[in-house]
Design a protein around this nucleic acid. Sequence first.
DNA 1: CTGAAAGCGCTTACAG
DNA 2: CTGAAAGCGCTTACAG
Lengths: 335, 335
Amino acid sequence: MTKKVSMSEIANELGISKVSVSKALSDKDGVSEELRNKVKITAQRMGYRINNSARSLKTDRQYNIGILISEKYVGDNEAYYFSVCGEIIKKLDAYGTSGIMEIISAKTESDLILPRVYNEKKVDGIIVLGQLSSNYLILLEKITIPMIYFDFYRQDSKIDSITADNFYLGYQLTDLLIDRGHRDIAFVGSIRATSSIQDRYLGYYKALIENNIALKLDYVIEDRDDQGKFIELEIPKNLPTAFVCNCDRVAFYLINKLKGLGVKVPEECSVVGFDNSLFSTISNPTITTVDNNVEKMVSTAVKVISKKINNPQKIYDRILVPGTIIERDSVKNIN
Amino acid sequence: MTKKVSMSEIANELGISKVSVSKALSDKDGVSEELRNKVKITAQRMGYRINNSARSLKTDRQYNIGILISEKYVGDNEAYYFSVCGEIIKKLDAYGTSGIMEIISAKTESDLILPRVYNEKKVDGIIVLGQLSSNYLILLEKITIPMIYFDFYRQDSKIDSITADNFYLGYQLTDLLIDRGHRDIAFVGSIRATSSIQDRYLGYYKALIENNIALKLDYVIEDRDDQGKFIELEIPKNLPTAFVCNCDRVAFYLINKLKGLGVKVPEECSVVGFDNSLFSTISNPTITTVDNNVEKMVSTAVKVISKKINNPQKIYDRILVPGTIIERDSVKNIN
DNA sequence: CTGAAAGCGCTTACAG
DNA sequence: CTGAAAGCGCTTACAG
């Protein structure tokens, strides 16, 4: 156990060449099944572990994927990207691949420093988890290894992306409120902050247009500042009968704020959110929201990135994963 | 940009040997400062990226740390380990090291399968984030690379660990309640689930003993099942005047449960938690809790693991990081 | 200060 | 089916 064991040692032990050992262990053709088994058993017994570096040096494949994520999403007290990250890593395992997480700090982002996983050739491809600044993305797009965006996309960019079908979901969710008799509907979310918020907003707007409801600009409420930090919500003078929030967390805050103002939810005011996160279930009332189908998004992302590694030319464009509306207790039918 | 560039290409470009290039780029002795600068500038211009695999093969160092975490902590909707993970990765960066996250699934854990990062020699050391089953830990402890436990420890184990000073913090927090006049104090938490809960409980018990308060077994309330899933809390028939909860999340659930039963917090019943997590601030009332000083815990962990990589013999034992009590609005003085 | 040579542990193309 | 040889891109000990 303590002395090192490489393919050579196994070869010596069995009186064969290390070429045969290599073929046997990696399930390649060129060895009899009998020898293959013998090699595998011996490797096991001797406590052999393959040396990924040696393999990589030869094959020019690292068997690692980089997962890039802004520090603001990590310090956000939100578990959403954590579960995404976990799912990605679990799915990668089926491809014999590990996930190297790299945190992009505000400084790295503004100083335009490429990630270590790229600079040191540690990964075969990169998944960018959550939106980064345009400038940084433009830098990243010069990278020479496969890369995909997860949960956002960038206009003017040829990088493939996987997102929820935010536009259509925003439309459906707003339509649900209109169905329930609401016509004074506000949208909560900073529409320039991320592509998701913007698209959810535009879906909301589409539903208004289709139902001949005028867009009111004071019904579009900012929820975060330039750094992505949540800010105090400005409730419109004339209270809408319903709010479409861009995420459950803000829906949760809004409900508590309304309660504080003496407004009963959903009796006097309905609220819907997005993401089907913890916030939608710990809220009182529980929140009608959208399940983004993270599992499907992740499995798509992992499939795409591994295909791109094998065939970097292939283009997948913007992949939209459909979600599902989950109805809970925060919407009142006022028909 | 498109054709590959290794140290040889840089050497050719400058008419020097690749040995000098290597020394220059890795800041080793043996080249003049003038040549070093010239090499660095040329490398930059040619878009050189070091090949970590080649370096690793030679130095037997991967410049990667494995971060092991159970899938149950990832799917838990809790951001605590996410922020820990993020902190670890940020701190590792200062050591020129990346973090490879590996999710230990329930199946991997019960089938006793060693992590890929170990089996494929991808890492120089391992940080285990959060408690795993004893059987799995016993397996892991046979590993031949440095390893530390974060946020828990195992009895009978020689693996170094970094934890909050849970015992003492449990004692202090309970003592605070006693100071405020409480004597009927319950503890909420499954005391066999993790070493943290157990130690917090024992600290609670110590405070009772020192103040001549009898331990009541129906005042020790389970909060999770064998899989770590939260269960319905059983409130004692005779309502205590205060509850010490093993974490903010359970404190949050408890407060909502008490409210549902018509019990006012803190007027009729005080509640304290642990972790200073999101739950302690979104609760109404906000929760008096303990800040575990994650930043200090992480910087200690990263320091220890890198020292162990350079000197595997060195023993650090159980390192306890002191925390701080944060007083908010969930405790009433009933003196 | 500079560089030629050896070698880390694999995989692959080729020959037998 | 089996194996000898070459080589991936670095670093290190050594010689000049």
